[in-house]
């Protein structure tokens, strides 16, 4: 990918993640290439099992070391994440990179108050006193627009509503001013009126702090609200990338097109939805060639024999489909089927 002088904040090169058990090997992520510039918001869109969450956990080395085989290059801010050890790794987590999850109750400790948890995180990473940490915690809760923040500092996680809990987790994730924020479906479990509040909040904070954000979601609407760029994943591969306007407005890959046409809205009343038939492939036995071919209405013989190449249109605009490859477009060499 052509790029100007500054190195990217995140660079994934040929990332592969396989989960190995006695019975089977699951290829969760296959040859993923991605870059994220500082201050950019990238949405990874995909359905369950597409490998979107696994890729993100690989970025932070959160996968079980014994079962997950990670190969390829993962660079964050110039650091080779896959070779980090001990202290360096814990400095990366929560210092340079932090993460927010779908269910805040799993990330917050139920036996400590919200203020205490944020203060402890600040103290650990910045080496300040507990009281300074508490002050910072108050600032952070105000930053994420928690009403009556001072009182909420002393609240336990279960005493907060879903939206406030999510805000508290965001505050904790921001406590050490990370350069990169990873968000794993943080608004999926929230109600519509609360979801939009959290999305707007994240958008504002991102702009103010200039963080890079990788936001994993299955919801195209969420991507439309928050993303600068979008990467669509299917069966462990990125099938399309581009700016959010390009991908949602002019999708190239049949899968992205199918996702858009099967997203329900009111105008379709009384008509059948153009659904994508079938279900995603079994990651234990991936078909050769394009993984989407069995569900694709444009599929032809060539789709199932060899993996389609990454067809690159502009910098950052890519679709992995043989149907969109005009001769004039520069192509990477054909990758033989596995």
């Amino acid at each position: 990918m052509t790029d100007t002088g500054t190195p990217p904040l995140v660079r994934l090169q040929d990332l592969n993640v396989k989960f190995v058990t006695r019975e089977s090997t699951v290829s969760a992520v296959n040859d993923v290439n991605l870059t994220l510039k500082a201050g950019e918001v990238l949405c990874i869109i995909g359905e369950s099992g597409s490998g979107k969450s696994v890729s993100m956990r690989a970025l932070m080395r959160l996968l079980p070391e014994r079962r997950a085989r990670i190969t390829g290059t993962v660079e964050v801010d110039g650091k080779d994440v896959l070779s980090l050890k001990g202290k360096e790794l814990s400095d990366l987590r929560g210092g340079l990179v932090s993460m927010i999850f779908q269910e805040p109750m799993t990330a917050l400790d139920p036996v400590y108050t919200v203020g205490h948890q944020i203060a402890e995180t600040v103290r650990r990473h910045e080496g300040c006193t507990y009281d300074q940490g508490m002050e910072r915690a108050l600032e952070l809760l105000e930053l994420v627009k928690v009403p009556s923040a001072e009182r909420r500092l002393r609240a336990f996680p279960h005493e907060l509503s879903g939206g406030l809990r999510q805000r508290a987790m965001i505050a904790m994730a921001l406590s050490c001013r990370p350069k990169l924020l990873l968000a794993d479906e943080p608004t999926t479990a929230l109600d519509a009126t609360v979801q939009i509040q959290v999305l707007i909040l994240l958008r504002k904070i991102q702009a103010e702090m200039g963080m890079g954000v990788i936001f994993v979601t299955h919801d195209l609407g969420v991507a439309a609200e928050i993303a600068d760029r979008v990467a669509v994943m299917y069966a462990g591969r990125i099938v399309e990338t581009g700016t959010v306007q390009e991908v949602l407005g002019n999708p190239k890959h049949p899968y992205t097109q199918g996702m858009l046409s099967s997203t329900v809205h009111g105008n379709m009343r009384g008509k059948d939805i153009e659904a994508i038939p079938g279900s995603p492939p079994d990651l234990r036995a991936m078909p050769p060639g394009c993984a989407f071919a069995p569900r694709c209405k444009y599929a032809e013989a060539a789709c199932t024999t060899a993996l389609p190449p990454e067809v690159i249109f502009d910098a950052g605009r890519m679709a992995r489909c043989i149907k969109v490859a005009p001769d004039s477009v520069r192509q990477k060499e054909l990758v033989p089927a596995e």
Binding site: A275, P277, D282, P294, R295
Partner: peptide, 14 residues
């Protein structure tokens, strides 16, 4: 039934 719908069987792990 639309044919798209009748093929839920497809892609089922064997």
């Amino acid at each position: 039934m639309s044919p798209a719908d009748a093929v839920a069987v497809q892609g089922a792990p064997a």
